[in-house]
């Protein structure tokens, strides 16, 4: 249609889709938390609906991830390295993966197999995950601002603030997890299958925060590497 290379030199940046992907993840975790509460209330029909929505959101996230990767050709030149962005996308996607993972396990619906003493701790962990998701999305949004203002000090400080929030919340979950693990041998009479189910769920809900922290550390690399 034209010989002008200006039609081809500008490409859509990945920074908007990365924010969108983070918001899908946050939505998934919020719905997951609601499903988690319903799991313990034994309201399985509503819980199933929510779990399906979480799984659908994870599929959306995967599709968006694939699209983002397509739009990052090897010749792309950004204010940050392409490898670092691909790495961030990779890590960020793992958060939603874990959310979907938990939804699948909840659908087994064996609430009775979870020791009563552990339930409050587990709910606490999931609540903190929602706070982490909120801080994470803010970190990603501020990261986008860092790029747009060409690494203005104020914007970098804003990102760091949210990164530290995610880190401290993840630390809280670590402490709760420590308490839970220490109490395992109090449940010697529980059957192994139930114990496995319980441990699996505890591991996954803790892992959500681990994956969020790992991802937010990738953002830190992006804003400080000059």
């Amino acid at each position: 249609m034209t010989t002008n290379p200006l039609t081809k030199i500008f490409i859509k940046s990945p920074f908007d889709p990365i924010v969108e992907h983070a918001e899908i993840t946050k939505k998934a975790i919020e719905k997951l938390n609601a499903a988690f509460t319903l799991f313990f209330e034994r309201d399985y029909s509503k819980m199933e609906e929510l779990c399906k929505e979480v799984i659908d959101l994870e599929t959306d996230a995967d599709n968006l991830k694939a699209k983002m990767r397509e739009k990052l050709p090897s010749g792309i030149f950004m204010p940050v390295s392409r490898g670092d962005i691909l790495d961030l996308i990779n890590h960020q996607d793992k958060i939603a993966d874990q959310a979907e993972n938990l939804a699948q396990w909840l659908l087994i619906k064996e609430t009775n197999s979870i020791p009563l003493k552990m339930i409050e701790y587990m709910k606490k962990i999931m609540d903190i995950n929602v706070k982490i998701a909120e801080a994470y999305v803010n970190a990603v949004k501020e990261f986008k601002d860092v790029i747009e203002t060409i690494f203005m000090k104020k914007e970098i400080n804003d990102v760091m603030k949210y990164i530290k929030t995610v880190e401290s919340l993840e630390g809280e979950i670590d402490r709760i997890q420590f308490t839970l693990r220490n109490s395992f041998f109090d449940f010697k009479e529980i059957d192994p299958v139930s114990l496995y189910y319980t441990t699996k769920i505890i591991d996954i809900i803790s892992d959500i925060s681990d994956k969020a922290e790992a991802s937010v550390h990738r953002i830190r690399i992006l804003i400080t590497k000059r």
Binding site: P5, I9, F10, I11, G75, P79, I150
Partner: peptide, 15 residues
Amino acid sequence: ARGLKAIDLRVIKNI
């Protein structure tokens, strides 16, 4: 100068 979010340098090769 980091003023642009994404440009495709393959265009230069084609030029």
